[in-house]
Design a binder for these strands. Sequence first.
DNA 1: AACCTTTCATGAAAGGTTTCAGGCGCGAGT
DNA 2: ACTCGCGCCTGAAACCTTTCATGAAAGGTT
Lengths: 358, 358
Amino acid sequence: MRRVTIHDVAGKAGVSAAAVSHAFNDPERLRATTVERILVAARDLGYAPNPHARALHSRRVGVLGVLFPQPIATVFANPFFASFLAGIGTVTDEQGIGLLTVTPLRGSLEHAIASAPVDGFVIIGLDERHGEVAPLRKRGVPFVIVDGDAQTASSVNVDDESGAYAAADLLLERGHRDVLVLTFETPQEHLDNPRYGVGGRRLRGYRRAFADRSLRLRSERLIPTPVTLHGGDEAFSAAWEGGTRPTAVLAVSDIIAMGALRAARRLGVRVPEDLEVIGFDDIPLAAASQPPLSTVHQPIPEKGRVAIRLLIRELDEGGPRERIVLPTDLVLRESTKGGSESGSKRSLTRAAENLAAS
Amino acid sequence: MRRVTIHDVAGKAGVSAAAVSHAFNDPERLRATTVERILVAARDLGYAPNPHARALHSRRVGVLGVLFPQPIATVFANPFFASFLAGIGTVTDEQGIGLLTVTPLRGSLEHAIASAPVDGFVIIGLDERHGEVAPLRKRGVPFVIVDGDAQTASSVNVDDESGAYAAADLLLERGHRDVLVLTFETPQEHLDNPRYGVGGRRLRGYRRAFADRSLRLRSERLIPTPVTLHGGDEAFSAAWEGGTRPTAVLAVSDIIAMGALRAARRLGVRVPEDLEVIGFDDIPLAAASQPPLSTVHQPIPEKGRVAIRLLIRELDEGGPRERIVLPTDLVLRESTKGGSESGSKRSLTRAAENLAAS
DNA sequence: AACCTTTCATGAAAGGTTTCAGGCGCGAGT
DNA sequence: ACTCGCGCCTGAAACCTTTCATGAAAGGTT
């Protein structure tokens, strides 16, 4: 069964193929009656312009890719990414752009990137000098890096270090001296190098808060934890059963924190009376947890919106590279004592403001 | 800046364009040394085959679309869809297939469908005879319908009615006579017609349980509710403040049920002592809510997996149409009295089993 | 009636790849 | 001596659309 092409429509309407193309793309150039005739023929035949042929010619498909270094199932299981994608989606929907989630195919990110029919990428959690990203530059495919460092591309980050500092500082200020820190399961060298992603920057913030009071964050209090409810639960209960009796928990991610909350409840540890807990991210669920989670807020959907706008701008006008850092903000709820005052909202930079405006 | 093409590589490697093509697609046909030479040239130039040109010729892009009738932000905010997409993703990742989420662009689903560069669609929550879906058939684009009726395409559904029946039956069996039913905000005619989607079928199950005990589900106990935490919260508190004092709640969705749970806690209504609550879907969060939510389990990721496998099979072999119905299962947790026994797992049909097998 | 402008429509080329049907050179079979 | 088959590679066509330059017809002016 051959697919119906522009020529079939042309034949049926008694015009040339070019005329059919015009009827769809620039109807002004044709007489109204002709356009009508063509459109009717097209509908009868069930014709729709072939997106590939169109893309081949115009060098645009109208689809942007969001690149994740982990399997797609992991991505969708993570509320952080859901929120991020939702932010991106608000922009693409209204601009008439499609969204392709690009994840390693059969384990190969390289293959996934090469075969993705997109006009550009938003890359999250992967550094520009990562082996799979570099070829994009060479091929002239534009991209924007989120939560990572970039020299030759625009990037969108969040002030992880300040946020982490604020969280740790609050706990230390309140006199906590035995703080359990639940970190990402990232290789040590990445955690130590702030250029390598969020994990390192957040940890650095915690450490600086300790250092500023001449304290030290002892490495046996640092527990690498899978970013799942179960991971956080497990990590906290294991520590507890190992005899550790922390009076506070700092988690680099809300999911992990919520897992710890669950474990604490099960173990009969009262939050916040016996244990204060602060997460990171402020995912939508954080406010709905039991008890509502104090956390470092970052504007997740904005991050997505800013990134995709930057990408679209680069695509449309070849706009200048920008390096944007969005503010973080300590939000106190009920997993810390003294209820729900919130940190001060710092103002966005001018550039970020324009891009964040809906 | 011209993009590097197959001809550039051919020139550099001193072979024809066809040879380059073979080097990538069917290396066996070329001498090993030639392949090597071509690949080196390609890497030096930063060449990657243009996906559009390739798709134009082969009539395959290696991307499948998942079609949602609502804005993308809504989709990603909904844990049900996240879980569904995760299920689909496990299959596409391992098969090397890309995933495009297709949602109305600038409000036009028709435009979104027409311009999506995909080989086929999984369509969720939209009926086959919907105006936007019909043209696909004509254009020969294969699709599979999920949570909807289909005559000319394969479909994957869940036994909504039995699940709903089981939930309502349990509550009535326990003597509840004042049950609040939180439904979707679907037009009445859709709710009444079981062919029109899940809402209608679930409601029908509830109703049948009432009818079987010669009771009637009074329409003022039926409250249309937005599918959000807030929606469920609002709906329950509004009813309570209006003087209604139900002893049980049936919600057509877990999110709604969890909203009701939250409202109940705020109003000082004890669950399950004063109020028993049963949701629908069994999203991952349901087990983690406070208290853990009793609900009608449906195999969400399996639904995605089965649907996408059906689609892939149709694409590859033009396999036969199938109409699959997966089982639902009442799962009792702590939002109902008497703890956590669970209903019997009914077995899948043979066809569904093959497709669900990971 | 000749000429000029507009308006509407077309043919052909371009965009980058894959595939089909050979071509080339050479040794083996007849 | 001729053909065939083999291994390796290539030219050209096909995939479907858009756009550029151009042509034809229609309508108006002198």
